[in-house]
Design a protein around this nucleic acid. Structure first.
Lengths: 116, 116
DNA sequence: CCGCTATATCGACAATTGTCAATCTATGGG
DNA sequence: CCCATAGATTGACAATTGTCGATATAGCGG
C-alpha cells in the first residue's frame, strides 16, 4: 500500500504534454536534495574528482588527505558523506580503505537536475 | 567576447583521452559548489520545478508561496539564492516579480557534475 | 605480544543556513 | 494623497555543517 504516488499523476487530460511533471513533491525534493547536498561542498567535489581521475579508478584516504590540505578526520568525514549519498563505495583491503565511484551515480545525479 | 567558454577546452594533446582531467582545482571546485549548493535544498528544488512546470515558464512569488507552505520572506530568500546562482532570472512587471529559468543553466549544472 | 600505521569515530567549536516575524519599498487604485 | 498589496530586506534564532584535535579500532611486521 505504499505504492500510492507521492507524485500526483494528474494526467487529467494531458496525453502528450512534453515535460509536464506536476512539479516536484516534498518527499522527492528531499531525496534529490540529499544527493545534491553531498555534491555541494568544494572539498567533496575535489575528492570525487581525484577518485575519478585516478588510473585505477580508486584512491585511499592517504592519497586524498594531502592534495586537499585537510586533516585526515575531515577527509574521512567527507568520504563518509559521499558513501552515504551513494556516490562512492568503500572497499577495505588490508590496512587501507579504497574509495571508488559508484557506477552511474554521478550520471543519475546529473539526470536528476535535468528532470526537475 | 562572451563566447569564451567557462569550461576550458583543454584540447592540448588529448585527442581521444576518455576523461583525463587533472582533477579539480580548489578554485574551480568552489565555483561548481556554489551552484550545487543552491540546488541542494528541497524547497529550492521545488521552486525550480514549479517555475519550470508553469505553462508560461515563469511564476510570481505569490504563486510560489502557497504550494511550498513557506512564508513569503523565506520564498523570497530562496529565490534570491537561485538568482544569485544564475539559475533563475527575475523580471518585475508592475507590482509583481516574475521568475523564470535561465536558459541552459540547469543543463550546465548537470554537465558540470559529469565533468568532474 | 607489542608497537606502528591507516582509518574511523567522538567531542567541540565557529561558521553557515533555513525559517520566521517585523519592517521597509514600490506600485497601483481610489 | 492615502491606502492596499506584492515583494524585498532586516534581525533573530535554532539547526546544520565543516573543521580540527584527541581517541578508538584494526591490520601488519617484528
Amino acid at each position: 500500500m505504499n505504492t500510492v504516488q507521492t507524485l500526483e499523476i494528474n494526467a487529467t487530460e494531458a496525453c502528450c504534454a512534453p515535460t509536464q511533471h506536476p512539479a516536484l513533491g516534498a518527499a522527492d525534493a528531499q531525496v534529490a536534495a540529499r544527493v545534491l547536498k553531498a555534491l555541494s561542498d568544494p572539498s567533496r567535489l575535489r575528492l570525487l574528482s581525484i577518485v575519478k581521475a585516478g588510473e585505477s579508478g580508486e584512491a585511499c584516504v592517504c592519497d586524498l588527505t594531502e592534495p586537499l590540505d585537510l586533516g585526515q578526520p575531515t577527509v574521512s568525514h567527507h568520504l563518509k558523506i559521499l558513501v552515504d549519498a551513494g556516490l562512492l563505495k568503500r572497499e577495505k583491503r588490508g590496512t587501507w580503505a579504497y574509495y571508488s565511484l559508484v557506477p552511474g551515480a554521478l550520471e543519475a545525479a546529473s539526470a536528476g537536475i535535468l528532470a526537475l
